[in-house]
Computed example of a mutant assay.
Amino acid sequence: MKSGAQAGFTLIELVVVIVILGILAATAIPKFIDMSTDARVAKMNAATGAIKAGSALYHAQWLVSGSPADAQNAATVTMEGKAVTGKFGYPTADAAGIGEAAGIAAPDYTIGSTGGFSVTPDATRTGCVVTYPAPTAAGAPVVVNAATTTTCK
């Protein structure tokens, strides 16, 4: 280098780098926009897991307690110091039953009663739902997860 000569980038080099960064950003932005739908699906998958675990834990505690039942085959089991209502050895399909057993409540989720105990990520996405039906004498309720990237948009 000659003394007194300036070192740096030319205007053309800077423009080329800015154009390349713009192209990379244009391809990455749609991926980040779609992440909110994926996050809602993951949230509902977490709710499904919590409901299944809460139901299984209630059933285990019910069995350990000697399968208590009254005339309607209903029982209240204490889980972590809280009374959880149940029927046929599984939590009832309400906030006092599976809601308490699974630890699912507002404001994390919107709670409903469509088809049993239903959970949505918010009030506007009613198709993005996990449902815990009322327990029957036949056995464990089957949790239905309708959360997909289509229903959770």
Rank of each mutant, 00 (worst) to 15 (best):
A83H: 05
Y132Q: 08
W62T: 09
T37M: 06
T92M: 12
T76Q: 10
Y132H: 10
A138C: 05
L63M: 12
G97P: 00
Q72A: 15
V142L: 15
G115T: 07
A74M: 04
V15A: 12
R40A: 15
K2P: 05
N145L: 07
A42W: 10
A26D: 07
S118Q: 03
S113L: 04
C128E: 01
N73A: 14
A146P: 07
E80V: 12
S118P: 00
A137W: 07
V64W: 00
C152N: 06
A101E: 02
A5Y: 01
I33G: 05
A101F: 04
K43Y: 08
Y58K: 02
T76F: 03
M1P: 04
A53I: 07
A102N: 01
A69K: 10
V64C: 00
Q6M: 14
T76L: 05
S65F: 05
N45L: 14
T151W: 01
L11A: 09
Q61K: 10
M35P: 09
G115M: 03
A7F: 11
R125Y: 04
V84L: 05
N73V: 13
P30G: 10
K153Y: 01
W62K: 01
A140D: 06
E13P: 06
E100P: 01
A69M: 08
V41E: 14
L21Q: 11
V15F: 05
T48K: 08
S55E: 09
G89L: 05
H59W: 14
L63S: 06
V144K: 12
T150D: 11
Y90Q: 04
G103H: 12
K43P: 04
A101P: 01
A140C: 09
K2E: 14
L24P: 08
D34F: 09
Y132S: 09
P30W: 07
G116R: 02
A71R: 02
E100L: 07
M1D: 10
V64Q: 02
A146K: 14
Y90G: 02
W62C: 09
T120I: 11
A95I: 08
S55Y: 03
V64H: 00
I51Y: 09
T114P: 00
V84I: 14
A123C: 05
E13M: 11
T110F: 07
G66L: 13
V142S: 15
A140L: 10
D38C: 13
V64K: 04
F117N: 06
I104R: 02
V84C: 04
Q61N: 11
K153Q: 11
A28F: 12
G115N: 07
T85E: 14
A56W: 05
P107V: 04
T151Q: 03
T10Y: 03
P68Q: 06
A25P: 04
V129M: 08
M44K: 06
I29Q: 08
V41G: 13
E100N: 14
A105H: 08
G115V: 02
L21I: 15
A102Q: 02
M44A: 13
T148W: 01
G89Y: 12
D70I: 02
A56H: 05
I33Y: 06
G127L: 04
Y90R: 08
G86R: 06
Q61D: 10
